[in-house]
Amino acid sequence: MPIKKRGTKGIWWIDIVTPTGERIRQSAGTQNEKEAQELHDRMKSKLWEQSRLNVKREYLWEEAAIRYLKEIQHKKSLDDDKRYLRWWTEAFRGRAINSITKAEAAEVVEKRYSAPASRNRMIATLRALLNTAIRDWEWIDHVPAFRVYEEPDGRIRWLTQDHAARLIERLPPWLATMARFALATGLRQSNVYELTWDRVDLRRRCVFIPGSMFKSGKDFYCVLSDDAVSVIRGQLGKHSTHVFVDRNGQPMSYWPRSNDSIMRKEMKSLGITDFVWHDWRHTWASWHVQGGTDIYTLKRLGGWETIEMPQRYAHLCVEHLLEPAQVTNLAQVRLTSAAQQKNKADESALSA
């Protein structure tokens, strides 16, 4: 049967067997039988052309996204890739992947994000999928030269203690709880909302983050401050498996855009700009340095692989360098030299 209804919404589905014996079943996206039949006929005609006239078949975005997701299950950035692919699907649903243009991609990411780094990460997921479609699947022949947004070097955005406290007070309780925990531990966004009770050890005051959640692949034990322990204890009994839950009391499988919208609204009311969730980690690290935590200890607390990352915060605290800086004080050198000469003269006078 070429078309048939499926589901309770009465959507028509297309069912075609190609000249090569391949079977294609997909939604026509309409409840109108005539429209579904016309789409079926166009697809069947195009498939005939592809088979008889050696025209390459056009693959839909949904086909590519599903296949790509199956092939990247091993990636440590899988959650991020899923989120970006979901947003690309909103834009390109029903489109042939060889019809996607550079300008369309730029329009999508610029509506979604303002930060250049976030735009580049979303574009990178699209580029990786299309490159796979060329290299491994041979579905398309080229990938557009997508725009790369210029990122500022070493962006560090942190809040004062007053601003942080006022912002957390304004957030809804379930979101404020996660913000407090991020600020108390320096953990990344996914490390917080995906935290499960089996990785919490209140006796040893630490939580375990598996290496699968880090680019380095190494396991990490995050030490809990008094405030972090207080937050954890406040979550006891709210869910059987997950420490943090959403407004409906359910664990989050991904970070919804609505969470960021809530934060932006409250930040605007406080005059806070250019602040994203990851900046809670920047704030945590900045406060540590300002409080006198040395860079090597901060590296261990934050789970960084190299010293370069925590080193970015070193400029926030220079008080401990004031005394060593006096070594090159020319005036001090002269005074010391004069004192030494006077002492020698006094010793000579006494010996005489």
Results as ranks from 00 to 15, higher is better:
283 T>L: 05
326 Q>M: 12
260 D>E: 07
220 F>V: 12
272 I>N: 12
82 K>Q: 14
318 V>D: 10
137 W>L: 13
10 G>N: 08
68 Y>H: 14
162 D>R: 13
288 H>A: 08
123 I>H: 04
128 A>F: 00
206 C>E: 15
159 L>H: 07
151 E>D: 09
52 R>G: 01
233 R>M: 04
53 L>W: 02
196 T>W: 00
102 K>S: 05
141 D>L: 06
286 S>K: 03
216 S>F: 00
187 L>F: 00
337 S>T: 15
181 F>A: 15
198 D>L: 02
117 A>W: 04
155 R>S: 12
95 R>G: 00
176 A>N: 01
235 Q>D: 04
243 V>A: 05
343 N>E: 14
179 A>F: 03
339 A>H: 07
340 Q>Y: 05
189 Q>A: 13
77 S>E: 10
267 M>V: 05
76 K>F: 07
72 I>K: 10
251 P>D: 08
145 A>W: 10
154 G>T: 11
278 H>A: 12
225 S>R: 11
95 R>Y: 13
277 W>C: 11
194 E>W: 01
58 E>M: 07
201 D>N: 15
322 L>T: 10
207 V>I: 13
45 S>V: 02
311 Q>E: 08
108 V>C: 02
208 F>G: 08
102 K>F: 01
233 R>G: 01
118 S>C: 07
147 R>W: 02
12 W>Y: 15
302 G>Y: 03
294 D>L: 05
45 S>E: 08
99 S>Y: 02
236 L>S: 05
167 L>K: 08
202 L>V: 04
135 R>W: 02
74 H>R: 12
139 W>I: 09
333 V>P: 00
328 T>P: 00
190 S>W: 00
22 E>R: 14
285 A>S: 09
268 K>H: 10
158 W>L: 09
16 I>N: 06
332 Q>F: 06
82 K>H: 11
75 K>H: 10
74 H>M: 04
18 T>F: 03
304 W>K: 04
251 P>C: 09
59 Y>E: 07
138 E>N: 13
